[in-house]
Write a protein that binds this DNA or RNA. Structure first.
Length: 135
DNA sequence: GCCAACGTTGGC
DNA sequence: GCCAACGTTGGC
């Protein structure tokens, strides 16, 4: 199983929206690097939901519910379905991530503009620990 | 409000 | 194919 981090502006689509909808199609990604990660996702993979802008914190855990499918008419883009698993009891702020030496190599910190980034298993464990999540 | 990062575009 | 200019995005 692989781990990911997906970023969204909470004003546009946030964790509460995802819970209300019981899942959503994560579409509209128009960056090739991010697209390539989406195509690697498999059902059962886990992903952190990260709120950008004002909040700047990881707020929940999702699962990938279905492998990618084409997004748009030109065949260039891809989307996956994601579903909520659990809200993080303690949101993990960007500042917390940056200040934790164990997360030094976390991809979203290195490539801050990428909206879809992979998370290493050991980094996932740390993020779950910081967030007070069950697993 | 500004700046850094970086992807895209267009002229050559 | 190169690269400068420009636009977008997110964080500070």
């Amino acid at each position: 199983m692989a781990y990911w981090l997906l970023r969204s502006e909470p004003d546009v689509y946030g964790w509460d929206d995802l819970v209300r909808d019981k899942g959503t199609e994560w579409d509209g990604v128009r960056n090739y690097t991010a697209r390539n990660f989406i195509k690697e996702m498999q059902p059962g993979d886990r992903a952190i939901f990260y709120h950008s802008n004002k909040e700047k914190a990881a707020v929940g855990v999702m699962q990938i519910a279905r492998a990618w499918r084409p997004d748009g008419d030109d065949g260039k883009w891809a989307s996956v379905r994601v579903e909520p698993v659990e809200r993080l009891p303690t949101p993990v702020s960007l500042a917390t991530m940056k200040s934790d030496a164990r997360l030094e190599k976390l991809e979203v910190l290195r490539q801050s503009r990428l909206s879809v980034t992979p998370v290493r298993p050991e980094e996932w464990e740390i993020l779950m620990e910081l967030g007070g999540a069950g697993g």
